[in-house]
Design a protein around this nucleic acid. Structure first.
Lengths: 146, 146
DNA sequence: ATCAATGCAAAGACTTTGCATGGTT
DNA sequence: AACCATGCAAAGTCTTTGCATTGAT
């Protein structure tokens, strides 16, 4: 059993909720992709192969997956939520290419330290953070120059 | 004439657009507040006093104000856009209190340097960034302890 | 039996757009 | 005359919710 499945089962069980076939399909599909997907993307890819779910169940299950700590919401400025895996991924931040829309993940050790400092100076109990850098990615710059 | 008005007039004129009474009201109202407001907030406060505008015009004018570099959109995780002043404000980032929703602005000189470093390492042409730190603010911690 | 989950369609929140009207240049 | 701006209501997008049905314990 995949670790995300075990965690999801436990999390649901601990709250008296059930691990249904629909929830299984949504979980599998969410962990098969490795991009930053939207609810509608997921519904679409499920419908293409399994067709065993409804829009409402997708939204409801994504919410559960977030609550169980398996997914998290990331917003990139559009009008819809994007989701990404938490399980098996250390904290990271994002570069967002304004030309092609590509999203690149990165981590930087100094960022944690900087965050601590800011919080200390501002007397704020910081728990999580997101850093997004907008600009133009290497590929797009390459394409432009040619 | 307030600087934001001069800029807005110029920006509109340069594009063959007009500085109308509605646009004036929306500009004034947007620069009278100093919080992170939503389109609906602005419409509401205009309706309370002047009542000379429609929802569509507010949305359309906010878009123009962003294009003219007077406002910028900031998202804090809800489902609606928030706007903040650009003019007269240096770049800053945000602390967001998860308990009371308060938004606190801060700047930190090291952040720029860190951003440069990241971009260099990732071969990314970074143009702007946003750092958001979520947590609990001093006031809320104070309240809890008592 | 009881309680939870699903699917559907309706409702909701926020935003954009088509169009007729009215104002500028 | 040509063009822009407004207001309204309709339409659009993304998401949530009410409710009847179905399924698990």
């Amino acid at each position: 059993m995949r670790p995300e499945e075990r965690i999801f089962r436990n999390c649901l069980a601990s709250r008296g909720l059930r691990y249904t076939p629909e929830r299984n399909i949504i979980l599998q599909e969410a962990f098969n992709r490795h991009d930053h997907f939207e609810a509608e993307d997921l519904l679409y890819s499920i419908r293409k192969k399994e067709k065993r779910t409804s829009r409402a169940t997708v939204y409801r299950t994504l919410e559960l997956l977030v609550q169980c700590g398996l997914l998290q919401v990331v917003d990139f400025g559009g009008n819809s939520h994007h989701y990404e895996h938490v399980l098996g991924h250390q904290h990271h931040d994002h570069l967002i290419c304004e030309r092609c829309g590509r999203i690149i993940e990165f981590t930087h050790r100094q960022l944690e330290k900087l965050k601590e400092k800011v919080c200390q100076e501002m007397d704020f109990d910081g728990r999580s953070h997101t850093l997004k850098i907008f600009g133009i990615c290497d590929q797009c710059r390459g394409n432009t120059k040619r």
